[in-house]
Amino acid sequence: MAREVPEVPEVSGPARDVRRLPKAHLHLHFTGSMRPSTLLELADKHGVHLPEALTSGEPPKLRATDERGWFRFQRLYDIARSCLRTPEDIQRLVREAAEEDAADGSGWLEIQVDPTSYAPRLGGLIPTLEIILDAVHTASEETGVGMAVVVAANRMKHPLDARTLARLAVRYADRGVVGFGLSNDERRGLARDFDRAFAIAREGGLLAAPHGGELAGPSSVRDCLDDLHAGRVGHGVRAAEDPYLLKRLADSGITCEVCPASNVALGVYDKPEDVPLRTLFEAGVPMALGADDPLLFGSRLAAQYEFARTVHGFTDAELAELARQSVRASRAPDEVRDRLLTGIDDWLGSTA
């Protein structure tokens, strides 16, 4: 049965503060969540030389639609990641990510991480993931933001590495790992090369949430669905170019984790108004707005909702529906979902 586009009644009155709108944040990368000021302090602490693009106080100029541009983006990310060297650094990053989300109205955060990138400095894969999960548990208790982890494989590495990560992720499913992802440039490699890793993750009860449909077109989204049996798609925005794919996503209720600011920053779309939020929304494709890598793109979660409002004319009622979609697509416990959904209704019923 086709999924109906939700009827969103108009709500009159002044615009409400989107930071007070309860929501879930489902697309946030680990190092990319770092505060710029924290990056500067950790670089000084560990004697890491940062390029001007990371010290200027402004988001770096990036355009990743060609291989050279993507390499520059990845290089900056890798330099920032090299500043995370101790358990205390990890704890600080996670706590501050939760604080930022709390300020933006997020009641549930699923942070994505490839632990192999940090393991050499933290004693190996298992100690690294345990440090991250302990940090997530502590930050959640301190900030009130529910948190979980999506372990992500790197599609630039061998598929056997992904299988190792999938087994590790399943091992910690009872400690806060809720999903398994696949990140990096989807123009490289084939999704089906990672099908066994995703089968391991799904059989272990984890959500399949690979990246697709950002730097590559609609075919990469179809590959995520056909080869990896995705329950959510990281980005997925290029599905807007294929009406049949839009219908498939809508009919199956598969959520796209759309990150508008990063789409523009990376050159996927030239102008903010080109990001097809309306196309996806009106086709009935569920969306969860995400900040992706605020360290490099300069905006966090609430700004994505402001983007939808100011650039694409989303009403407060439509923003509330986007927030509901993010909550429904999350792996939050039922009591957290119920609380957030009630809060969304309260926000919509309030005055600005």
Rank of each mutant, 00 (worst) to 15 (best):
A80I: 14
R19Y: 01
N184V: 09
P120K: 06
A97F: 10
L125R: 03
A261M: 01
A24G: 14
L54K: 07
G204A: 11
G253A: 05
Y244F: 11
G213F: 04
M1S: 07
L54Q: 08
E142G: 03
L190H: 05
R81G: 03
H158V: 12
E321H: 14
A317C: 10
A153H: 12
G176R: 09
G205W: 00
V150M: 12
D174M: 12
A239L: 04
L39S: 15
Q304H: 13
R171M: 11
G213C: 02
V268P: 12
H235W: 00
D78E: 11
I131G: 04
I126H: 01
L40D: 04
D223H: 08
R81D: 10
A240S: 12
L190F: 05
G32V: 08
D270N: 06
R85N: 00
H312K: 07
A173T: 14
V327I: 13
A352P: 06
G349S: 15
V5A: 10
P127Y: 07
R328K: 06
A197G: 08
F71S: 12
L129Y: 01
V258N: 14
G253R: 06
L84K: 00
L215I: 03
L348W: 07
F297S: 14
V221L: 03
G57T: 10
I131V: 15
V150K: 05
F194S: 06
K61A: 05
G313A: 03
H29P: 05
D292Y: 04
G47E: 07
D104H: 11
G212K: 04
A240Q: 00
A197V: 13
T138D: 08
G284L: 02
R248S: 12
V336F: 07
D44S: 03
D338Y: 08
R155A: 11
A302V: 10
T315M: 03
G217W: 15
L246F: 06
S220L: 10
Y172Q: 07
A15P: 11
G231D: 10
L245Y: 03
L295P: 05
G290E: 00
V237D: 03
R187M: 04
Y118N: 01
D185V: 11
A250V: 13
F314R: 07
V113D: 04
G253S: 11
E186H: 07
I126W: 01
V18N: 08
A288P: 15
V11L: 03
G69D: 10
D292N: 14
L133D: 02
R163Y: 02
K247E: 12
L341A: 14
Y77Q: 14
H312Y: 05
L39T: 12
R328C: 04
K271V: 01
A2F: 11
T342A: 12
A98M: 12
Y172C: 01
V151N: 08
L62D: 02
V48W: 02
N154Y: 00
S37Y: 05
A80V: 09
